[in-house]
Design a protein around this nucleic acid. Sequence first.
DNA 1: ACGATACCAGACAGATCTGTCTAGTATCGA
DNA 2: TCGATACTAGACAGATCTGTCTGGTATCGT
Lengths: 176, 176
Amino acid sequence: MTPARDRVLSTATRLFYAEGIHTVGIDRVIADASVAKATFYHHFKSKEDLVLAYLATEYGRQRTVLSAVPGTGLTRLAATLTKIADLSAGPGFRGCPFLNAATEYPDPATPVRQLVDEYRGWFRTLMFDLLTEAERPGAAEKADLLLLIRDGITIAGGLGDQAAVQAGLRTALAAV
Amino acid sequence: MTPARDRVLSTATRLFYAEGIHTVGIDRVIADASVAKATFYHHFKSKEDLVLAYLATEYGRQRTVLSAVPGTGLTRLAATLTKIADLSAGPGFRGCPFLNAATEYPDPATPVRQLVDEYRGWFRTLMFDLLTEAERPGAAEKADLLLLIRDGITIAGGLGDQAAVQAGLRTALAAV
DNA sequence: ACGATACCAGACAGATCTGTCTAGTATCGA
DNA sequence: TCGATACTAGACAGATCTGTCTGGTATCGT
């Protein structure tokens, strides 16, 4: 609702994603967002608070994007995987924000890491549910695999490796 | 040969891998390595120089480990993939050092990123050669896939996701 | 009209970062 | 024995980091 907070969050999202979390300082964020420092600390109690807000927003965005994929069962599953591959191969893609954040926060006890686990758990459940709906045998094992291939696709996409992205997508589609 | 340099490099390897590159400062490295600051800058011209030395060392280690895997063709390929999965599931594993470094250096033009590309290229070639030796059809596409699964296995292992590691290994073995 | 809230500019503290420099000791090959 | 090399301790510069604080203006609901 408040414009200054929104400006901070969208600026932080852009900078954190493009350049990494540790390399982008608060001063940089507030300068790019044209916001006073006191205003920033009025809305966020610390930098980590901003990082968590950034990831929570991304989490919501992902859920929105993937829940908008049409179809049911196998059709929707295939469309979902294709969507992810397309996004990962697109311009400006710099890897999965959650995997990137996990690398920058090596301690698994960190709130950031818990959010990453939550995100991956959500994706695994989504895969499991769609596999179950399609009455696929071994839904649990297949969901684990699709999660791993998703991770691999986002890594490959982030590194500009289009061949691996396509290989991953083909295998994911063949597995379901 | 020089003990101080070795101490710096092994300390940096331990700290960079466990805690990340940007979060570990030079002061921390030289303190843990019990080395004077002037000595550090005598052997390394900058922190980035140390980072590159760290990654180059890891690169060499990986080549040593995987070239020591016994067997030929399919047998060796399967043993190699199993070895990677075992290492990724082991204690103290915190993800692939190269993928971690790539996340911390988003600019693809960076020397660090070029080394990461070189590492992944080497692994892809290794897969391709073993597939070709085993007279597998579609070696190029399979090599792309095995590289992507390798990436996924190291990610899953770094996050403590044993189920995904096993799912990835099964699929990799089934694909060859 | 008034109180709370949102916002501004910018100084400031205290820590930490990379990298340089001074000044000196120890070792070792030629 | 001499000169190069490896090494020590630690001060220092200059930048940058997070977070606090002062002191104010503007907006808005009641």
